[in-house]
Design a protein around this nucleic acid. Sequence first.
DNA 1: GATGAATGAGTCTTCATTCAT
DNA 2: CATGAATGAAGACTCATTCAT
Lengths: 193, 193, 193, 193
Amino acid sequence: MSERTGGETRKKILDAGKKLFSEQGYGEASMRAIAGEAGISPACVYLYFKGKEALYLTLMTEWMDELARETKSALDGVQEPVEALAAFIRCSLSFAARQREIIMLHGRAAGFAFASERKQEFFRSRRAIIERIVAEGVASGAFGPCDPAAVAKVVFSTIRGYVFAMMVEDDALYAPDACVELILNGLARRNGV
Amino acid sequence: MSERTGGETRKKILDAGKKLFSEQGYGEASMRAIAGEAGISPACVYLYFKGKEALYLTLMTEWMDELARETKSALDGVQEPVEALAAFIRCSLSFAARQREIIMLHGRAAGFAFASERKQEFFRSRRAIIERIVAEGVASGAFGPCDPAAVAKVVFSTIRGYVFAMMVEDDALYAPDACVELILNGLARRNGV
Amino acid sequence: MSERTGGETRKKILDAGKKLFSEQGYGEASMRAIAGEAGISPACVYLYFKGKEALYLTLMTEWMDELARETKSALDGVQEPVEALAAFIRCSLSFAARQREIIMLHGRAAGFAFASERKQEFFRSRRAIIERIVAEGVASGAFGPCDPAAVAKVVFSTIRGYVFAMMVEDDALYAPDACVELILNGLARRNGV
Amino acid sequence: MSERTGGETRKKILDAGKKLFSEQGYGEASMRAIAGEAGISPACVYLYFKGKEALYLTLMTEWMDELARETKSALDGVQEPVEALAAFIRCSLSFAARQREIIMLHGRAAGFAFASERKQEFFRSRRAIIERIVAEGVASGAFGPCDPAAVAKVVFSTIRGYVFAMMVEDDALYAPDACVELILNGLARRNGV
DNA sequence: GATGAATGAGTCTTCATTCAT
DNA sequence: CATGAATGAAGACTCATTCAT
């Protein structure tokens, strides 16, 4: 009846894949289980996706695209480096909190090549954003002197590890502010204060 | 001279498991492949380990024990919180640099329960160490005022994410000092300097 | 016309299982061989039965149910104990002659518990039927004085052993009358005759 | 030290085989388990027996020989057919009561040919003994008129089924007299009594 | 558009058996 | 006499995938 039947089924498959891949990992999640979760037959999945890899890559790609979009929008118009960095961190954590399955992006996941390449490129691009912000902050004097590349790596790792912890640990402590605060001000007591 | 004692075969299996589990993940690494990598028959693996799970858990346990041992030794006799935190971070990164396969510890790993429980307990215990150091630092005035639990989580996540990046990224930029520096002093320019 | 409904394949599997389990025993009959006998792939068997045990139990259950049904019908309306006992014996032997694979029911069978329990219960219920008939016969004076429980055991064993012999021995001597005659009248010459 | 070491080990293996084969069946009992039960290494079993089949056949043969010997001795000097038949039945049941593992002899057991042939020959020979006794009894007038072959089959089956029941059933009611009584006198009430 | 039925390849695992020591 | 170490073959079972309907 409805014209969007096909589209709806596709959506159901993607949701099911999201759930099972993130819960069980690529190898452990079976196509049959995904189809079952989506409420359709295994054969039907193949009408929408060429295979398991294709489904997996589609999910990853959609996430990466969505996160990139949200990040762009979060940074849009923000000039000040400190604010920009805080916005980047908050955006990353917020996305992960809403899309817990993004954990799939991390980890070795599947054995096929494309996944890794695409993912690495994506992570590199995110690190590059941080690096640019840091470099600008150093130039403007907002940040102390440092190697922007090395610092970007640490900052990015902090975010990544924090997202990871949010997903994996049982106490789902979600405190973006502590993360922002540490990165900006560090632990050691400041001189005069 | 060329003794083929059982111990050697066991070691070969452990090494092969380390390699394949870390490269491909638990589900994707097959016992056949592990046996092949070790240069023995699949059946032979079962003379040394009860099954795939047992092999996996052995590897994980050995790592956790070894890392715990090294950490204890690194912190031994260190009183000053700043030094202690730096030592903890350096120890963690150094271990990962030497035992790249420790990445296995992170990630969803296997579907069976014990692995997760054991791992979570291990990670919790490491976070607790950081928390203690931070609390002491706050008490002694070495660190600024903060919530030790929240900060410990961020610090631990930074280390975890950094280790992760060391393993996964292609540019194996290994700069423990940048990590220590950021965590201690933060990014923002200091008041007087 | 030539419909390949699922029911047909299921039937083929059951027939193949019947044949191989009865010929080779539970442990020796392989799923591969059963699938081959049924003309399908091993994987296909698992679309119809959860596993080897399930297939085996299905066969056993079907037999027990069918034999119970036939027995009930054979005894229906028969009042006279002598006739009833003869009917029971004839029914048992006739069933075995038609379903030679029922030999599976006898013997140690499989290592899993349910099989044994279910079988023992079934055999006990059949012995109980004999016991009731004998008790009624003793009460009515049709049978001489005896312990119905002990006699039931012997009678049941005779039937069981006879069925066994029918299957195993090469000379498939099928003589229900001799069996009935011996049980009723014994071997020893009667007093007056 | 001891000269009989070898013989003792052989005995231990036979006992272990007896136990496990009878408890679990041929296919389910593993050589490793048998060796373990005997307190030796699997390889050691092969110093005494060529393989699993050979061990199994040795056990069967020893039983058959022993039972044949005991039967011969039980019938020795007994002339009267009624007494002889009773002796045969009692001997069979008594042997089974002492050597519960004889159940191995019954059932399909192993898939290899020799076992069946040897067993069938053995069972045939025992049936022949009964047949001879019955024939003599008929000739002497001790037994009523009947077809000795058919009757022998029933009598033998009764014994076989009874032995089977002794092993398999949980209520180990062991009443040889009931068995003897039924076979000799039957169930039906005698004329004058 | 959807599926029930089917399968070849591959999973982990066990087994009977051998052989150097 | 005995065994620890090892293995090829086979076991039950699962999976991603296809295709006639």
